[in-house]
Design a protein around this nucleic acid. Structure first.
Length: 248
DNA sequence: ATGGTGGCTGGGCCA
């Protein structure tokens, strides 16, 4: 968030979303640029730890009932990976799901545990009949059509069955991958590795998701991945995913 | 596709 403040500010000014969910701020809790965001018209809430992880929610339509980490009663995570808030009557959550690293790595076990606790967090704090959006970097490509080449992902994280099943368990709370309401195409990606010219080769994955409850899905009218944001100077390796939700 | 780039730092880790 520090290195890309100019890009984020420019993008906010041009795109003017009502709400923005940010992951991997890599900032200590109190170093988030709340003032710079306020100058652009956005309230902001940040859950940070510095150096790694960190999640935030920006809103110009209200920001209340902010919750850091999982709800009380659920095993708290040691890292700053989820923040929840209510914006314009919608409960929104900004999630940075653990990467997993390797299938036989402890971090992969942590990834599955984290997703299980995300489901617990949903069960504990809201209902499927509420307006809920759970968004962020899930580090999971839901289906094979969401990666550039399945053969390149054999025995790799992001596509394995256990993590996809864990994501399904999250969705079975009553959430839907909003992108697929509007787009059936394969090879539409939200992340490309910095290395090896992946972006220019089209070697990407769709791992950034906006999951929503049915009342939000019904009001959704449009979605897109802003891949232009992956271009230019000092881009993030992720592109923003946009969802338009009509007023009640 | 066992390297490669980028950002945190201030050497090495993480993605």
């Amino acid at each position: 968030m520090k290195a890309r403040l100019p890009r984020v500010s420019e993008w906010l000014s041009e795109t003017q979303p009502d709400v923005l969910l940010i992951q991997e701020t890599k900032l200590k809790q109190d170093l988030f640029p709340h003032d710079a965001m306020a100058e652009l018209g956005y309230e902001s809430a940040h859950f940070g730890q510095g150096q790694w992880n960190g999640v935030a929610i920006l809103s110009r339509v209200g920001l209340s009932d902010v919750q850091l980490n999982f709800a009380p009663g659920i095993e708290q995570d040691g890292e700053a990976r989820i923040i929840s808030a209510t914006c314009a009557g919608i409960r929104v959550m900004s999630c940075y799901v653990p990467n997993g690293r390797e299938l036989d790595h402890d971090h992969y076990v942590y990834k599955l545990s984290w997703l299980n606790r995300l489901r617990q967090h949903l069960d504990a704090t809201c209902s499927a009949s509420d307006d809920v959006i759970v968004g962020g970097d899930f580090n999971i490509a839901p289906e094979d059509r969401d990666v550039w080449d399945v053969k390149a992902f054999e025995n790799a994280t992001h596509v394995s069955k256990p993590e996809r099943d864990a994501l399904k368990q999250v969705c079975e709370f009553g959430l839907e991958d909003t992108f697929r309401k509007f787009h059936d195409e394969d090879s539409l990606f939200s992340w490309w590795d910095y290395r090896g010219g992946s972006f220019h080769k089209g070697h990407g994955m769709r791992i950034d998701l906006l999951l929503a409850t049915s009342s939000v899905v019904e009001r959704s009218t449009w979605t897109a991945i802003d891949r232009n944001a992956r271009k230019g100077e000092q881009p993030s390796d992720h592109a923003p995913v946009l969802l338009r939700v009509s007023d009640v």
